[in-house]
Design a protein around this nucleic acid. Structure first.
Lengths: 232, 232
DNA sequence: CGCCGATTTGAGAGCTTTCAAACTTTGTGG
DNA sequence: CCACAAAGTTTGAAAGCTCTCAAATCGGCG
């Protein structure tokens, strides 16, 4: 475990309020893996031996059924993954693979559960984290069930613009095929959906994308905090 | 608060392991509402003043956007709803309405958060509950993104059969339009999907439904524990 | 420069929704 | 208890959306 990552992890909401002793206990057996892109960290159905913390790079959570595969979430630093499975000691419902060169901290599951059982502050922090994960998943499901694919794309673009209301160009920093899968459509359909959004001022050039008429895009996308705001 | 409901609530995994004192503190200001069908308990965007526990009847969680409405979940006794929003003191992401005459226990949110902060056993139980809610939502999303509507219906039928492998008739104990919305399709499409499943041995008569050839239905539905088993 | 994979475009098929109408069920009031 | 009204369900037809397959184009890496 390199000492440089420790403060980053300590600063996570999940670990911020626990005692130094308990944090030490968690980190004692933890270690960092540096992985190239495309490496599978675990596969759905596996048992959680470690809690994974993405410190650098990015990780795709995906699921498979009957020959199909779909991207469920892209995890970016600094965040934990599969906390729910670790705590329940239940099999993973999703698989994970690196999308780029990544640093992953592995904390033995047994240690997590033990500290969880003895440190109230940690247990409460875990609740905050889990509640957030749950609510994100509810929002994603509303997005899927209530919107057409083009509407999902339009709202995704508006979310990328972030808190700032600027109309500056944004970069699609993942493969379009992954974005398509994340949004619940095929790559071909994403390409067509981007063309349809041209009517609402969206200009695409490769991975560069610009919403030149934000009000028009908003009129089409009808974003709502109850789906699109990720910090509530 | 009628004393008859208290043991039922106490028996919930969520409240089972907490101290008597803390449980008393929670129940002191709690009260029961008996409601006819179709009553809205709260609406998305509202703030959680109470943790709701469904003691009898059933409650639909649904969401709206841009004139559409979709059923997210049907909650049946005995279970809590919107625990995540209560703990985070964040606005509801879903609305709730009774589907039949129901008894709902209302526990003031402040009390829940206060006990949560001081009772470690309760905090840990909450984590177990939330992790389960999160995993249910992941399964629902996999179901939506990886399966066609007919496949979702077939797997829903298999789940209704439950643990027993009997091929006996089952009753669709909710309106078909609600079932359609829950499965992410229109009522018309549900009707057609049921007809398509006739090829796999499904016989429908009104609300009565029988899978006369379970192996055939399973071959078509391809159920997997990582989507369809709700207790892992 | 050339290869390989990703993206785009086109055509067609398949699935889902919408709209309309007929039919069934449910619940209410006479 | 029946009749009627209201709501839910089913069926049909047509339109719209999405996916699949195939081919062409674009882009990055060795």
């Amino acid at each position: 475990m390199r000492p440089t990552e420790i403060p980053e992890i300590r600063a996570l909401a999940l670990f911020r309020d626990m005692s130094d002793d308990q944090f030490e206990a968690l980190m004692r057996a933890a270690y960092v893996q540096t992985l190239p892109p495309g490496i599978e960290l675990f596969h759905e159905g596996d048992r959680p031996d470690f809690l994974h913390v993405v410190v650098e790079g990015s990780v795709e959570l995906f699921a498979e059924w009957s020959g199909h595969e779909t991207t469920m979430q892209i995890v970016q630093p600094v965040a934990t993954i599969i906390l729910a499975a670790t705590l329940r000691d239940a099999p993973f419902l999703m698989s994970a693979r690196t999308l780029e060169r990544s640093h992953i901290v592995l904390v033995p599951s047994d240690d997590v559960r033990q500290v969880f059982a003895s440190d109230g502050a940690f247990a409460r922090a875990v609740v905050g984290e889990l509640a957030g994960c749950y609510r994100s998943m509810v929002k994603a499901q509303k997005d899927l069930k209530l919107r057409s694919s083009t509407e999902r794309l339009a709202n995704w673009i508006l979310r990328q613009d972030g808190i700032a209301d600027r109309a500056g160009p944004i970069t699609i920093d993942l493969e379009k095929r992954k974005l398509a899968s994340l949004l619940g459509m095929t790559p071909e359909n994403l390409s067509r959906a981007l063309n349809r959004l041209a009517d609402h001022g969206v200009v695409v050039e490769g991975k560069e994308l610009q919403a030149s008429d934000l009000p028009a895009l908003r009129r089409f996308a009808r974003p709502t905090p109850l789906i699109d705001q990720h910090d509530i």
